[in-house]
């Protein structure tokens, strides 16, 4: 039982401090992105040796640590604060915040607007 953050994550940091299991792994600083995971530097710039960085360009969830907040909170915390629709999936790959659920923009309206912009 674990959630997954995918590449549409915008690295806003909102989820990481809320996780009761410290299962959310921040992305690497750009210059360290190549090569093996290293000690991660915490949000204040100090060294945080307890976490490796994700090795990618966005936040990841450590599936071994994630409990989907069962026993800690009524709602999975990362899902409850994430501002990006579709960025967090459950084990079956289902979007926890489906299109339109956070912005209020109906998906068909979004598609029409994008098509209109592309046509300009």
């Amino acid at each position: 039982m674990a959630l997954e953050i995918i590449e549409s994550c915008v690295n806003c940091w909102a989820c990481a401090p809320l996780c009761p299991n410290q299962a959310i792994i921040p992305p690497a600083p750009r210059e360290k992105r190549a090569g093996p995971p290293q000690a991660f530097l915490g949000p204040l710039g100090g060294e945080r040796s307890d976490a490796a960085f994700s090795g990618g360009s966005h936040f990841l969830i450590d599936a071994d640590k994630c409990t989907e907040c069962v026993g800690d909170h009524a709602d999975a915390q990362c899902v409850a604060i994430c501002p990006i629709e579709g960025a967090i999936l459950d084990e079956l790959g289902v979007e926890m915040n489906p299109p339109g659920s956070l912005t209020g923009i109906p998906p068909e309206r979004w598609a029409a607007a994008q098509a209109e912009i592309a046509a300009r």
Partner: peptide, 13 residues
Amino acid sequence: DLPVIAPEAPKAG
């Protein structure tokens, strides 16, 4: 220099 987030990566609005 202790950057946490790569300069080009964040797309936070």
